[in-house]
Design a protein around this nucleic acid. Structure first.
Lengths: 279, 279
DNA sequence: CGCCTATTTGATCCTCATCAAAGAATGTGG
DNA sequence: CCACATTCTTTGATGAGGATCAAATAGGCG
């Protein structure tokens, strides 16, 4: 079962008491970081905290002064209406930052909640801010991650506003497959999915009942084989087409092949220009 | 009519041929910018370009190497499906940055299109990158703006996923009122609205017909008085409640009273700590 | 084994989409 | 200044996708 496997991974890691390092998060995957910046990330003190399923890292509307880096397990950002309707605005996977907004905003309108057991690295805002202020490369990572969340949200907007239930589900599963690392694989893909259909409903803006029916539809069409806790994608090409999915917006490709833009490059080139004269 | 008034404002400004400055955009509103940073923004060369209604600043999926700062008029970010359904993911008002993503991404999945006549300041990515690399305060503005777009998108996600048509419309109008500067006014508010009902439908994930019906509903309930090109909010409190609107997520308040976080502050305090000894 | 939670399926209802067409505003050219 | 085309708004009639209500089944866990 999914929760079990997630917890297992957590247990294979270092002693939970041990303060652990930001270098294990997605932050480390940016190609333009200097050795000093990587060292600063390693040396940045962070309290590793095991968190149980259902735990609220940030309560909706509460003031925040801690940035949480998700080490293991899944989490989500969500909002609720006064009468209790809930919408999940972002799914957070291992390595993601749970509430980057806390770097610049004292108060968030969204809550953050664990969807599985797992563990987070908690870092006071002050400390993250210092890191960002002293190391431009790290600051750029934060900006990059923020803009990247943006493109994901824009795309989700299209899903919620214009796609049918079947299309939304197909899209979500494609997105998760890519974000979990099954990138451009053409063959069948299988991955653990700790979300319940109710969670999925809260992501897709549907009812759990209708999510279930959409699953069945995709299954009978031969695109999927879903069992509790596991998704098997039988026909990934068809699933992509069904979900209007184009992986470009996730920007994983750039990170992999190291073609991300480095702002300092621009600066270096400008300096060159000064010596060479204008244009 | 709305378009006309927008154009009028544009004409009151300086010579359209003249290269204009970034200090006229929302960038200038950040309290923590140093005089040098403000000067750098003023000195940053930008070509001012009048743009006509319907013009595409960025075509969906095309590579981009220019950042557009919206000076006058309204624009939007949008996405379309293969079969032509369209979703507007962001409305851009005067002062907004149209495609901040272009700072760090070479290719965008969203298009940017003018919804009225207006004018933009076009700045090559390189030049914005240099600015960001040399002036940490400006870099922080970009990050702030990115994260701010994020919270707006998260909220839109709630609207699209969980609110009824009437609620969505009420929410959008409240958001626009605040973003246009009619902040906490309790009395009746009137503002120009150049969007057609079709545009609104593309924002809210509805059909134009249903947007029209939602308008009529709000009008007969006595919350609104809408005519072509103008919105009159009669009962702002009721409209807020109808749209589940809480203005906090827009973070305009912090900007106004200057309570935005300055990352350099954290750094200064840390330095103090070093002299005072730990804790 | 029994409790609890998650998935599955059925029946009915309602919100919103679709199709169609008439009216108001705006802009254009003569 | 008026006739006409165009675009936007408004209203009606009908249909479909998804919500809601209800209950049965299956799976995980103590």
């Amino acid at each position: 079962m999914a929760n079990g496997s997630v917890r297992t991974i957590a247990m294979l890691r270092a002693d939970p008491r041990l303060a652990n390092s930001l270098a294990d998060t997605r932050l480390a995957s940016f190609p333009f970081l200097t050795p000093e910046e990587r060292a600063a990330m390693r040396d940045c003190a962070a309290t590793r905290r095991p968190v149980r399923i259902g735990m609220e890292l940030v309560r909706e509307g509460d003031p925040v002064d801690t940035v949480y880096f998700l080490e293991d397990g899944w989490a989500c950002q969500y909002t609720t209406t006064r009468d209790g309707r809930r919408q999940i605005s972002a799914l957070l996977l291992p390595g993601d930052i749970c509430n980057l907004d806390a770097l610049l905003f004292r108060q968030l309108d969204v809550g953050v909640r664990m969807l599985t057991h797992g563990s987070v690295l908690a870092v006071p805002r002050e400390r993250v801010a210092t890191l960002a202020a002293n190391y431009p490369g790290i600051m750029q990572c934060f900006t990059w991650l923020g803009l990247s969340e943006n493109t994901i949200l824009s795309r989700r907007t299209l899903c919620l506003g214009r796609l049918s239930a079947r299309e939304r589900l197909a899209h979500l599963l494609c997105e998760l497959a890519v974000r979990l690392g099954h990138v451009a694989s053409e063959g069948p893909v299988t991955f653990a999915m700790p979300l319940t259909q109710e969670h999925i409903a809260d992501v897709l803006g549907l009812t759990p009942v209708h999510v279930n029916r959409s699953f069945r539809q995709l299954r009978t069409e031969g695109l999927l084989s879903s069992t509790r806790g596991t998704i098997g994608v039988c026909d990934i090409v068809a699933l992509r087409r069904a979900g209007e999915f184009q992986p470009g917006y996730l920007h994983v490709q750039e990170l992999r092949n190291g073609s991300t833009i480095d702002l300092r490059d621009a600066n270096r080139r400008e300096t060159l220009h000064m010596f060479e004269g204008p244009r």
